[in-house]
């Protein structure tokens, strides 16, 4: 399987995703938007899944 990016970059991106999610949830709570744990996890799973899909989709297809 060929990735669109290197596994190392993918790992760092996934980590960044998690981190941004945790901090964003706090930031949103300050402006009065509170995400439940469930919603946060769902957003996280969706974001990471999207990232992984993007990475494994062969370059050039559908573009």
């Amino acid at each position: 399987m060929r990735l669109r990016t290197s596994p190392a970059k993918l790992l760092v991106l996934v980590a960044l995703c998690l981190v941004v999610l945790v901090e964003l949830r706090t930031a949103l709570a300050f402006v009065g938007v509170s995400l439940s744990i469930g919603a946060t996890v769902a957003v996280g799973v969706a974001a990471i899944a999207a990232l992984l899909l993007w990475a494994v989709r062969p370059a050039g297809s559908g573009e």
């Binding site: 190392a8 790992l11 981190v19 945790v22 706090t26």
Partner: peptide
């Protein structure tokens, strides 16, 4: 590489909770 990334994720989880 996994180790440093784990530290990054772990620290954000732990300190975010501590700050809040």
């Amino acid at each position: 590489l996994v180790q440093v990334v784990l530290w990054f994720v772990g620290i954000v989880f732990m300190t975010n909770s501590m700050y809040r």
